[in-house]
Design a protein around this nucleic acid. Structure first.
Lengths: 224, 224
DNA sequence: ATAAAATATTTTGGATCCAAAATACAGAAC
DNA sequence: GTTCTGTATTTTGGATCCAAAATATTTTAT
């Protein structure tokens, strides 16, 4: 549905330097928000009409996203949102577990009090207030971003971000919402923040590994 | 220099589906072979003349490589080969250590006898026969590719490949060649092949971590 | 009615064109 | 000689155009 995309896009129009980066940001956001189904075909013309540009910036942005692994182009056939099957989920989670462990290991000793303060609000969230998958993903995203940011390694952060988006696309559409998992997830976040507070990197790493293992477990059990 | 690039490119011309993928492969290869300096500017027009295409496929390919992190574009300024400084080397090696450990851990139990047979020739290489950085990188690349391939996870393999290329670009130009390290490296490869032969994934993982730690150590000591 | 073949339409990949921004260059002022 | 300013050139970003391939549609034959 390209009309939703149009609305979301209009918000950032003009704020960015080039039309290409405008399209890029819009597409990234749309992907993260689940406007497209995994495996869905992306039509350049429709996109260019929705975003009111020529096909050029679209083509450029699509190429970047292919490089990032979020889209797949098949020559002379078209562009498709990266498909996620059981095997790929295993692969992506395996990578995430290692990279996010690395990020936490490095972030914890570098956290300022302000960094930790930013994490506190997430521990106060009451599970009942999270009603949709979108909210869950958004909250989760914000928490993990804040948790890893102090590691201050842009490539690592970008890679984690990309792997999370790839899973997110799938989650939004096929994901069944489980209040129990939601509660457990927030409990695990709390434990993580505690470990950060004590500047216990080793414990934090262990917790983030377990957290991701649990998430994967839930994912493969209910969503595939 | 763009004339070398032209020669290397001609070899694959026509074999590929689209001009864009032809340009993409040529550029990737050129980067890996050190035709460009880290930080060097890429001129679209010159490139298109060297590869005898219009600017279109060049622009597309550059966008893909930006998505992969090998090139950086600054709006209205130009495209540059990703710069690598001491901090970035630390970051890339840290990611490599985790991801390559993961790849080996998964690859070893899945190796067929044929997979292991492919590794044997590398253990027989005599250090004296490796004379240039290029040869070193090429040999290293082939060995590691063969080592990780059986893990059969395309995203993981691609990511490792990208991180290795990013380091390689730098290594070729600034890298000082050390016969002692060369010898040690081949010894470490031999130990790795032994571990594979015994299907000892744990030992292989420990060895690849140490191998990469040593390589990083050498890199930061002599090349920065 | 179904399958195959021919035709029409859509859509991608590539080339060219144009405008605006950045860069390089030249000349003037101090 | 150096610095500032105004001009010329280069180069990127975007739009449009075109051809070839793929897809959809219609026609024809069985």
């Amino acid at each position: 549905m390209y009309s939703n995309l149009h609305d979301l896009a209009e918000a950032k129009r003009g704020a960015l330097m080039t039309l290409e980066s405008f399209v890029l940001e819009s597409l990234r956001e749309a992907l993260a928000q689940g406007f497209f189904l995994p495996g869905e075909e992306i039509n350049e013309k429709e996109l260019s009409q929705a975003l009111k540009t020529s096909r050029m910036p679209i083509r450029q942005a699509i190429a970047v996203l292919e490089g990032e692994g979020l889209l797949v182009r098949i020559p002379r056939r078209g562009t498709f949102v990266t498909e996620v099957n059981a095997e790929i989920v295993e692969e992506i989670y395996a990578m995430r577990i290692e990279l996010e462990a690395l990020a936490v290991r490095r972030a914890v000793p570098r956290m300022t009090d302000a960094d930790i303060a930013r994490l506190i609000p997430f521990t106060a969230i009451r599970p009942e207030t999270i009603a949709t998958i979108q909210q869950h993903i958004e909250m989760n995203h914000a928490f993990h971003e804040a948790l890893y940011a102090p590691c201050n390694w842009p490539r690592l952060l970008r890679q984690i971000q990309q792997l999370r988006t790839a899973i997110g696309v799938h989650l939004i559409h096929r994901g069944k919402f489980s209040p129990e998992r939601e509660e457990a997830s927030i409990r695990e976040h709390r434990a993580l923040v505690d470990a950060c507070h004590n500047r216990d990197a080793e414990r934090a790493e262990q917790l983030i590994r377990q957290h991701n293992e649990n998430a994967k477990e839930m994912f493969v059990r209910y969503n595939l």
